[in-house]
Design a protein around this nucleic acid. Structure first.
Lengths: 138, 138
DNA sequence: TAATAGTATTATAATTATTCTAAACTGAAA
DNA sequence: TTTCAGTTTAGAATAATTATAATACTATTA
């Protein structure tokens, strides 16, 4: 427990984020639950443990994580942002039936931009698939 | 004009869409303005010409176009859907500064899914880049 | 310990995209 | 003309997000 918390704290510090208890708990939730949760999911998972937690804090914290590069925002769904603590390059598959979002490995990105380089600045690249997953398709 | 309208009508019919005047006008706007507009953009561009046009109609029409495969929904921005009349496989680059969305050619998609096939069903795939475009980066 | 400055958190209001609903309209067929 | 399914409309309702302003916390210094 203490060990684990130390890890979380040093992870936050590594990204220049001041380790408040809310930030530690939110980070822990993201690390332990690789389900690309939305704000509501994070909030409702933690509010029992921290009854005074505010949704605004969840918004602020996730925006901060994203700005510092500790988490990514996923725009795979209309009208809500999801969050991913895994920040290496990978894609996602969203099942329209069970709503689950799975990771998809990307081996090589073969586009105009990746081939010829790009004179502007690229912050993020996202590959999203949408459909019905194997389980639901049966 | 008449010729052009006939083209639009037959395009709609080709996709099994009943050609109401609203649908014709919206299709024409999408064909003539390849800027990946959002609902607001489409609505405000057409409301002068059709003063009774309702935003609900724009929503309904674009949902219908997307369902019938005549247009694609783009989830490149948080909190709003954009529409693309170009339906062949291609990606997008969104400039965070000037807000412009450019098309990006995709030559080959090299992912777990494209390599090994997928046992489920894939409706859509989307490649999005976000950053600062060449012009704004100067 | 007390004061203070800076940061983080909170509750609430405001905003905005989208969906819902019920009524009105349209055009084709009976 | 009447009917009927499909379409459009206006406005209300919903839900995610953002903005704001007040409060609480934390670390440092006097």
């Amino acid at each position: 427990m203490i060990d684990n918390n130390l890890n979380l704290v040093s992870k936050l510090k590594e990204f220049n984020i001041k380790p408040s208890i809310q930030r530690i708990e939110i980070l822990e939730y993201l690390m332990d639950n690789r389900i690309h949760p939305n704000i509501e999911g994070i909030y409702s998972a933690l509010v029992d443990k921290m009854p005074t937690l505010s949704k605004a804090t969840v918004y602020n914290t996730l925006d901060l994580f994203a700005k510092k590069g500790l988490a990514n925002k996923l725009y795979i769904e209309p009208n809500e942002v999801r969050f991913d603590i895994r920040t290496d390059v990978h894609g996602h598959f969203k099942c329209e039936k069970c709503k689950k979002i799975e990771d998809v490995e990307i081996y090589n990105l073969d586009t105009e931009i990746s081939k010829n380089g790009y004179k502007g600045i690229i912050y993020a690249e996202e590959i999203n698939y949408r459909g019905i997953c194997e389980d639901c398709a049966k």
